[in-house]
Design a protein around this nucleic acid. Structure first.
Lengths: 137, 137
DNA sequence: TGTACTGTAATAAAAGGAATTACAGAATGA
DNA sequence: TCATTCTGTAATTCCTTTTATTACAGTACA
């Protein structure tokens, strides 16, 4: 996970959770995160596709949570933004004539599965509501 | 962890573990990983700084493990290559005038610490020898 | 003393991420 | 109805990060 998508999604969701049902515009959200509104809309689009957010077009439109913050697990956020494996992959194909090179990808994939399952197990136990609760008034 | 450093380091260490004390050159290693030898030497330099590898200059030089594969925990490899946080950071400073923006960094840092400790706990239980054992002859 | 290595710096090329521009389409409400 | 204010999305440019390459000094060996 090379980029800032997880923190950005967390920021969006935290804002929505604290807005308590009120629709927030991408411009407003972008102002809090300090990034471009188009990037916010892209992330919202992604989170919507994963069932975490609902949004409304047109005047007075914006985004809101699709379900209560208590029911949003951080593992869902992780799943929504994850694209690459956690610990990275070598870009090139290893040498198939080398006994190690031949198998390393498969072995690393297996290792990554184990690691990710440990991580997911942890994230499943945390809800967006838990996360929001840590914020001081 | 955006890049391929973890898999590359794992590949290097696996080759050295399977070489059983014999010195391997950066060219040979690069040929197995299929990357540039200079990048291999850089990773070796890093792994050496972390006490996982020893290397010898000059003719017939190369690298070898600094200790038995049984004593190399995968958490050590992780520490050696980790530079950024696991789930990424937003590049820009969030808006300090927003109650969420003001605190989000700190809250995410805290979350990341929890997550990483779960991951490290898992990696501590795995040795390089364990990893190598999975390779079929 | 030539050869085969490492170590490292500097630079270039490639890839990926983020910002920006642009604009169509939807909802609102005056 | 129609200007306004939003979303959704594509296309492009800009910037940063990764990776590859080039170059060369230094080391060890035989």
């Amino acid at each position: 996970m090379n980029n800032g998508r997880f923190p950005i999604s967390m920021h969006i969701l935290t804002l929505l959770a604290s807005a308590d049902g009120e629709l927030l515009s991408s411009d407003y959200i972008a102002g809090s995160i300090n990034i471009n509104p188009v990037l916010v809309r892209k992330e919202i689009s992604n989170l919507r596709n994963h069932g975490l957010i609902e949004s409304k077009e047109g005047k007075n439109g914006g985004a809101t949570l699709a379900k209560p913050a208590e029911k949003i697990q951080l593992s869902e956020v992780f799943h929504a933004v994850q694209q690459a494996s956690l610990l990275g992959n070598s870009k090139n194909e290893p040498n198939p004539d080398c006994p190690v090179g031949k198998q390393i990808k498969q072995r690393l994939d297996h290792l990554y599965l184990e690691i990710e399952s440990a991580l997911l197990h942890k994230l499943e136990k945390m809800s967006l509501a838990d996360f929001l609760r840590q914020f001081q008034q």
